[in-house]
Design a protein around this nucleic acid. Sequence first.
DNA 1: TATTGTTATACTCTATAACTATA
DNA 2: TATAGTTATAGAGTATAACAATA
Lengths: 146, 146
Amino acid sequence: MDAMTTLAPPVSTPALMEAVAAVSAAYFLDFAAAAGRHGLSSSQAKALGVVLEPVPMRALAGRLGCDASNVTGIVDRLEGLGLARREAAASDRRVKIVTITDQGHEVLLKIRADMTRAHRALDSLSEEQRAGLLTMCRQLLPLLGN
Amino acid sequence: MDAMTTLAPPVSTPALMEAVAAVSAAYFLDFAAAAGRHGLSSSQAKALGVVLEPVPMRALAGRLGCDASNVTGIVDRLEGLGLARREAAASDRRVKIVTITDQGHEVLLKIRADMTRAHRALDSLSEEQRAGLLTMCRQLLPLLGN
DNA sequence: TATTGTTATACTCTATAACTATA
DNA sequence: TATAGTTATAGAGTATAACAATA
């Protein structure tokens, strides 16, 4: 039994949610700003990260958490910028596979390298928030079958 | 200087970024879904959370990470739903203060309660979501000083 | 019949620029 | 002159519904 365990009491759910919200908000704003500096919307940049591995349009919608009809426009614009491309699937001719291009890969790496504020956001968490995240991880692990 | 501080030093690593990205994506999708169930967009719900304390329009824009011109429409819709209201500032007649209403407070609490339930409903997670959470916990735990 | 991707439609979010009323 | 909020505009994201091609 270490000191951390004794110091991390049953953290209230609100405190835990605050910690996650604080980190998430900082991360999202940072991500959107970094994408914008490289001429992409956050949705486009997020999609670019998903298609690092070739993904069907439908599955991409699932990963982005939006309806399939939206993916058409998002991939249209990425394709127009030369950052991704559609390819026909061999097994099912209804399916189109989205793949990142070399140029897209370069842009994605630049965006990720640009993200630094999220680091500082996590560093600047209050001790209660930090304890909340720690407790969350400890509670989730056994529930996830670990 | 207490034990918590020594045990949880500031950390900045690529693994940490991945963990933050995973938790942020999960949180955002959860938040947007919970807001939608109560008839609000994620921007509207986020704004509602900010104005728990009265906030000038300009400051609200800063907190939302968007241009001030957008806040007009967002608050218009919240006001139309009876969830927030504008009030004149006493010190500066150019300024309008946005405040949450009792009804808005109720809706916000329902949304947040909804998220807590969603986070706890691990059984309903997809395999992909489950894997993402597991990875996040494993990466975040040691970096938090455990 | 069911599924994949697309299109059409309508609403919201977003930034830019111009406007007003205050300071 | 500078600032707070609004309006006008245009581009992008979003869901719903309907459609053609394919399974």
